[in-house]
Amino acid sequence: MTEIQPAIWKRFSKKQSLERYGIEFVLLLIFIWATQSVDIYWPFVTDAPAQAVDLLHRMTPPSVVFIKAIIPSMIETINIATLSTIFAVILSFPLAILNARNTTPHPIVQMVARVIIVTSRSVNELVWGLIFVVFFGPGVVAGVAALTMRSLGFMAKLVSESIEEIDHGQVEAMRATGANGAKVFIFGVLPQVMPIIIGTSIFRWDINIRQSSVIGLVGAGGIGILLTSSMNMFKWQNVSMILISIFVVVLAGEYVSATVRKKLT
């Protein structure tokens, strides 16, 4: 007979819990470093609630008559979102083909496509806006160009991933009929990626509605321009009305996008 050992149970072994505490400790240190060294003027922070109430006070009630100025500007915003989505879809398609492992004509071409996609995706639309305002001057054209540039990489990345994931059997079947590369593509590849292209386009349009309302802050057209000018003139009741309109349009866009995507799939 062996002596009965008192059963000890612990969730983690000693090494495991040491590791966990270690990670948690490091995270805590990072957090402390960040809060201690960040350049915050603390009186601003203590004063914040009062300031917030003050601003809210100046913003109420929202100016309903200002809606007259908002509507044309909002239509422009939606146009920017729609046009840039369309341009991005068209331009991203060849880019996606050049970037997908199984459709790229050459590794060097693929590299170039990849660089374009990464650049497009990692530069924010406001930065693209700044750049295109330099080219075209302030206005809608710069806005459309900026959002097109930003959406391009997003679309191309997702579409080329879906091209890489197609069922290769269907492609083989088309090759076996004696079709050349282009015809193999439109029968063997395109039908398989079409749902992704459509779904992603609508999704991107939804995102672009949101983004097109801010690119005006750098002069690239849309409601953001109206917002900036209202703020510069301290017309806070106009500002709140603009914010409400943006909120409504963004929600509507999200609803439309979700409904259409559900219908199509």
Partner: peptide, 14 residues
Amino acid sequence: SFPPILVAIMFVKA
């Protein structure tokens, strides 16, 4: 619903 930039500009104003 609001893009971060829009929120940021309001907080900066406040």
